[in-house]
Computed example of a mutant assay.
Amino acid sequence: MSLIVFARSLRVLIWFAAAMQRWSTPRLLARTHLDPSTRETVGALVRYSVLVSGFMIVMQTIGINLTSLSVIASKSAVSKATCCRSALLDAIHQQLAQREIKAA
């Protein structure tokens, strides 16, 4: 029984996420000054955030406790963000070091 509920919930979730993307891209984001590629990117981010949030809700609904998974995911996200920040800062410093400094 629980597997059927899980499958139906995922089907509804995927449909809802696609509907949110279809709604947000042409209607909501068309009123902004963003170019079309940025609108599509924001629409995709809306879809993915709805999918992730909905998947967590579906898993909690069928009885799977996601507390430990949330802790592991947050630790992983923090470590990835720190790594990306370090790489970005190194690239910026390298670009600045390659510039010639002109005397005023």
Rank of each mutant, 00 (worst) to 15 (best):
A18V: 12
S2R: 05
R8Y: 13
I57W: 05
A19T: 10
S53F: 10
T38S: 02
S74A: 06
S76V: 08
S70H: 05
I14P: 08
I101T: 05
V42K: 00
P26E: 11
L3H: 11
A91E: 15
V42P: 03
F6K: 06
G63P: 07
L89A: 07
R85K: 11
L13E: 14
K102L: 07
Q95D: 15
V5A: 10
W23R: 05
I64G: 02
T67K: 02
P36I: 04
H33F: 03
T32G: 01
H93A: 08
K80W: 15
A97S: 14
L45V: 05
G43Q: 04
V58A: 04
A19F: 11
P26D: 13
A104N: 03
R31M: 01
L13A: 08
T25W: 03
A104Q: 08
M20H: 11
V12P: 02
S70T: 08
I62Y: 06
T61W: 07
F55L: 06
A87W: 09
G54Q: 07
T38P: 00
D35R: 04
K75L: 12
R31K: 01
S37V: 06
E40A: 01
C84G: 04
I62C: 03
D90Y: 02
V58T: 02
V5K: 05
L89N: 10
T67A: 00
Q95G: 10
N65S: 05
K75H: 09
R27A: 07
L69I: 05
P26K: 03
E100W: 03
I14G: 07
E40L: 00
L10Y: 15
D35L: 00
A103G: 02
L28Q: 14
V46H: 05
L69E: 14
V50S: 07
S74V: 06
V46M: 11
A73D: 12
S2L: 06
S49W: 10
S76H: 10
K80A: 14
R39I: 06
H93S: 04
L3D: 15
T25F: 00
Q94L: 07
D90S: 04
L28N: 09
K80E: 15
N65K: 01
I64E: 15
T32E: 03
G63I: 01
L69P: 06
I62R: 01
Q60T: 05
K102C: 02
C84Y: 10
M20I: 13
A91D: 15
F16Y: 12
V58L: 02
R27N: 14
A97Y: 11
A104H: 09
F16P: 06
W15L: 15
A81C: 09
H33S: 00
A77Y: 13
T25C: 01
V71G: 06
S68T: 04
S70C: 02
L28D: 11
I72W: 10
S53K: 04
Q21S: 09
A97R: 12
